[in-house]
């Protein structure tokens, strides 16, 4: 659980002195002040990278999402109109890119990466590759390999939107209201998405815990 972290993050997304400071930075960056632009980006780029990396389980994809997200931010900062916080705007760009990646990957996966083991089992090659990645958190080794496999599998079975909402709520600690804002939907819709995701996980993992 990451409640503490979550509250800190959502405090940053809500209107607060932090938000006013952020708006000042945005205006300065729009005037072409480079230090302001650097400061703005450093408020959220680590979060974007973590989001993309955990979601896509792949360094290269996370790197690409980072580039694409912030180049779009750079190119369109002058049209940013303060309808939402800068952070929400950046996350909106990043999550849309991640959704595209996940959707493309799902298509690719359906086409090619499911391998029938011949014993009535179907393995997902992308999950196997993620498993072998030595850069993944060492904490993982504390979990039983079985549970890990099961979690990877159920994450793979979530729809891209469910996966994204779960990622932002569970790992990034964003409040459902902020997630709704990022995804251009209501808090209620984000809540339903999260509910479906956690239900699926509980069903699939209930035997392990």
């Amino acid at each position: 659980m990451v409640t503490g972290k979550g509250q800190a993050l959502s405090a940053m997304m809500a209107a607060s002195p932090v938000a006013t400071e952020e708006a000042d930075l945005v205006r300065a960056a729009q005037r072409g002040e480079q230090d302001a632009f650097t400061a703005l980006i450093s408020t959220c780029d680590q979060g974007v990278l973590r989001l993309a990396h955990n979601l896509l389980k792949n360094e290269q994809d996370a790197f690409d999402i980072y580039q694409e997200t912030f180049l779009r931010v750079f190119r369109s900062l002058h049209v940013f109109r303060f309808d939402c916080s800068f952070r929400t705007w950046v996350y909106r760009i990043a999550t849309n890119l991640c959704l595209d990646y996940l959707r493309k990957r799902k298509v690719r996966k359906e086409e090619s990466s499911l391998v029938n083991t011949g014993q009535g089992e179907v393995l997902d090659r992308t999950a196997v590759v993620a498993e072998e990645n030595p850069n993944l958190d060492p904490q993982r080794s504390l979990l039983s390999a079985e549970l890990r496999d099961a979690v990877e599998r159920v994450l793979g079975e979530l729809t891209p939107r469910e996966r994204l909402v779960f990622e932002m709520r569970h790992y990034q600690g964003l409040r459902l209201r902020a997630i709704g804002e990022v995804l251009g939907t209501t808090e209620e819709a984000a809540k339903n998405c999260l509910f479906r995701a956690t239900q699926k996980m509980r069903l699939a993992l209930g035997d392990f815990i």
């Binding site: 659980m1 996370a62 509980r202």
Partner: peptide, 22 residues
């Protein structure tokens, strides 16, 4: 609650240096 903790442990943290390189 245990399930939530188990999920926490599955977060893959970007490798050191990826942020700098990006």
């Amino acid at each position: 609650r245990s399930l939530h903790h188990a999920m926490d442990a599955l977060e893959s943290v970007p490798p050191a240096g990826l942020l700098q390189a990006s």
